[in-house]
Design a protein around this nucleic acid. Structure first.
Lengths: 340, 340
DNA sequence: GTGAAAGCGCTAACAG
DNA sequence: CTGTTAGCGCTTTCAC
């Protein structure tokens, strides 16, 4: 066999010929459309299995649906996102829809690029996870493709949102630490977080600052900044600890950062209670025992799917769902040591 | 604004009209094709930005390329897979190609479904990670779409493979344990692993059995079985430990299982050295300190991309690449305790 | 160097 | 109940 040209697979035309009917007829049985006799349906179905026929999504896309939901994910290292993903695929598993993921590692530009790649491929609906994309860009996209944004707080008229109640989550985390006796509580967040914005980390930071102010402990030294990822978080916490921070506890903006903080603490043999956010699966590992705020990522992902379905059904007014988080107390939080 | 119909975005026709040229001309500047004057290129480019024109992938797909690489991932909870993914996206980041991921949680059937979904969407090339799909099914698919399989050992004439040298990796892990003084070494693997098959876990199991036979210690009691995921691994190890296993060390078929084993060990306060496989990022966390066999997932993903590119360029003979793994010794392995 | 025109596989009126 | 037909947006010969 010399230079086997890749064979083209069967088209609707081939099926029609094999079954001795018209293309339209085949298309109809394909779509379960009205007006096909049983005998015809059977002949056509037989021909389809016989020829291993699979409709070309691209050709369908030229007329209507692609039966594809696109989801943009910024970081597969963060298992909260993958839990959201699991929720969406589970919600879609018995439907005609297929999930397709566009990775968007490395920041904002990639996030937008991923979304546009999905739009170019004519997904029927879009689930967006990167929280810091410009609202105007999202709204432009939402004009052509139904979109649900996960995690961002300020609602838009143009798209749906699914978010956690971050103020509530922060309160739970902070009260827990305060009840244990901590007063000097640091907060580890991303460089970009800004209490005036509406992304989840910004909202958490804002609420943290309010709480500390209430206790008369607001202090810039207690806000530690890091890039995304455990390594950077570890380095940031090492720096803070080595420069003699008086913090006895740390509230991290999410578990990935908390895990990085735990690395630094273990390496330095320091005493510091840590609370995370999200409750990623590894957090419950007994060797880690990370106290954290549980977010039901799977439910949030599933809800996003249903919101999309409602849009397909014709809903035009924007929906905004909020999920309550829940503190999970483990071994990483203890009362402050007395020798402080 | 009542019931705003979603606006359709600009087509090549619109751009042509705006620039005062023909559709063919626009298509040519789009593809950098031969035979366009500078003045025309400029006019057209201007019109494209002006109208925010984006070519529809579906329409392109009807004639040629989609500039899309599809990758099937069975389990986002396993960070080895996501590292492979990172390698592919990085390798593709400066090209015209876009990665698109189809999730395939829950076993074989889903794996095939995901792949076919990708084929239906006319990806130009396919990277497959689920190791247990039937070879015949893969070869059927490879006849129409270039495919590279990651992790499976037995080569195929029809598609390319990228795998780790698992025999070598197992040898490194086992020698390490033996040198520490362990003799009763258990192996934790999936229920489906079968020493006569060619998936990575099967190959690891086979090599483990050979090694144990060499040391005169082959024993069915030392092969522990589990489903995918930390929870199931934890339960399996608990069961084995509670039924009084005499093992002093455990070699797990991959890190996810090893992490689950560590859970059981911590919960039971048992003494058991554990070695994993893959070296997922969390393995190096000091609280876990998991000794494991490092596989360069990112390099493997990148290599897969390049193999695909070579296929696009016309290569027809199958390639099979092997990557050397490397033991990383951490704190989860110690000499057996003397009171055994 | 540029444009006209055919056609990729499918859907959706519409006519029979 | 079934078939004919007109595109969807793009690429690609092939004339001009």
């Amino acid at each position: 066999m010399v230079d086997a040209a890749r064979p083209r697979s069967a088209t609707i035309e081939d099926v029609a010929a094999a079954a001795g009917v018209s293309r339209a007829a085949v298309s109809k049985v394909l779509r379960n459309a009205y007006g096909v006799s049983d005998s015809m349906r059977n002949r056509v179905s037989a021909a389809m299995t016989e020829l291993e026929y699979r409709p070309r999504v691209a050709a369908r896309a030229m007329r209507g649906r692609t039966y594809t939901i696109g989801i943009e994910i910024p970081d597969f290292g963060n298992q909260f996102f993958t839990r959201v993903l699991a929720g969406t695929t589970a919600a879609l598993s018995d439907t005609a829809y297929q999930v397709v993921i566009a990775p968007a590692e490395h920041g904002l530009r990639e996030g937008l690029r991923a979304i546009e790649a999905l739009v170019d491929r004519q997904v029927d609906g879009l689930i967006v996870v990167s929280p810091r994309l410009e609202q105007s860009a999202l709204e432009r996209i939402a004009r052509t493709t139904p979109l649900v944004m996960i995690g961002r707080h300020s609602p838009s008229e143009m798209y749906d949102t699914v978010a956690g109640d971050d103020a509530h989550g922060v309160d739970a985390a902070m009260s827990h630490l305060v009840e244990l006796g901590h007063r000097q509580i640091a907060h580890l967040t991303l460089h970009e977080s800004d209490p005036h914005e509406d992304g989840p980390h910004s909202v958490r930071l804002a609420r943290y600052l309010e709480t500390m102010a209430l206790h008369g402990q607001a202090d810039d030294d207690l806000v530690w900044r890091s890039d995304e990822g455990q390594e950077s978080a570890c380095a940031a916490v090492e720096r803070a600890l080595q420069s003699g921070s008086r913090a006895t506890a740390l509230f991290a903006a999410h578990d990935e950062l908390a895990l990085g903080a735990q690395r630094a603490i273990a390496e330095l043999g320091a005493e510091l209670s840590v609370v995370g956010y999200d409750d990623v699966p590894i957090a419950s590992h007994p060797a880690l025992g990370l106290t954290t705020v549980h977010q039901p990522g799977d439910l949030m992902g599933a809800r996003a799917v249903h919101l999309l379905m409602e849009r397909f059904e014709g809903r035009t007014v924007a929906a905004h769902e909020v999920f309550k988080p829940e503190l999970r107390v483990r071994t990483s939080t203890r009362p402050p040591s007395l020798d402080g």
